[in-house]
């Protein structure tokens, strides 16, 4: 089975649509969204609707800290808070109910899906190096942990001795998830990449070949930047999309 795994969509309709199209063209038969459907971007209604439809069709969908902040107290920076305040009244009660009811983790066989660090999903811990990846490995026995939240793709492995290694990700190349280790992949963001590549990021998990492929997809970031400006949202968010930082 080929599972498309998306994280950090951040109300970026163009990027979300481009990723779904790319995944379908590559034969994805299942979808998983690791949270942060809203926040930062100008199209929360469309993106939540699309996520609801995917869930109705069988997709996995988790809650991220921005989704949670719509109806619960979350600590966010001022800019993120401003966009969530702008987002809240635009969402229907059904959409808000959908976000609030999303689970924090999902386990499918050997794979654990979560928005941030697996040791305390509700604490939204950033996984940014072997040191911060280790608690996730210790917290579960999954052979593969998939998370987002950082907006910069990175791969980690935990060897037989329990030592955690990081591996520079190679975009577009299938990464063999060797049976001799446990793996943790931090996916890039669909809607707000921060690794210097302004293209939408997601991953394809091939469960038959046991390979994970990180992908980047071009989309019309300039159009999204214009929409942000037209809505009067912070200019820094528009710049960020164009630069991928």
């Amino acid at each position: 089975m080929l599972l498309a795994v998306l994280s950090d969509i951040h109300a970026n309709r163009e990027a979300f649509a481009a990723v779904l199209e790319d995944a379908r063209a590559r034969g994805a038969t299942g979808f998983a969204i690791l949270g942060d459907i809203v926040g930062y971007g100008p199209d929360p209604e469309w993106c939540v609707d699309r996520a609801m439809r995917l869930v109705a069709e069988g997709a996995i969908c988790l809650r991220g800290n921005h989704d949670s902040a719509v109806d619960a107290a979350e600590s966010l920076n001022a800019q993120a808070r401003a966009v969530i305040d702008w987002t809240r009244p635009r969402l229907s009660p059904a959409q808000r109910g959908f976000l609030a009811a999303l689970p924090l983790t999902e386990r499918r066989g050997e794979v654990l899906l979560v928005h941030a660090g697996a040791q305390a999903p509700r604490d939204w811990v950033y996984v940014t190096g072997p040191g911060s990846a280790a608690p996730s490995f210790r917290a579960c026995d999954a052979r593969l942990i998939l998370c987002g939240h950082v907006h910069v793709p990175q791969l980690y492995s935990c060897d037989l001795r329990g030592t955690v290694h990081d591996h520079p990700p190679r975009i577009g190349e299938g990464f063999p998830l060797l049976g001799s280790r446990r793996w943790l992949a931090v996916l890039g963001a669909v809607g707000q990449p921060r690794d210097g590549v302004p293209q939408a990021g997601y991953a394809l998990l091939d469960t038959d070949r046991n390979e994970l492929t990180l992908r980047r997809v071009a989309y019309d970031a300039a159009a999204v930047a214009s929409r942000l400006r037209a809505e009067g949202l912070p200019e820094a968010l528009a710049q960020r999309l164009l630069e991928g930082r």
């Binding site: 791969l155 290694h165 990081d166 591996h167 520079p168 190679r170 990464f175 063999p176």
Partner: peptide, 10 residues
């Protein structure tokens, strides 16, 4: 070229 170099990394 297409795979992580585990030996170089470790």
């Amino acid at each position: 070229d297409l795979l992580p170099d585990l030996l170089a990394e470790e």
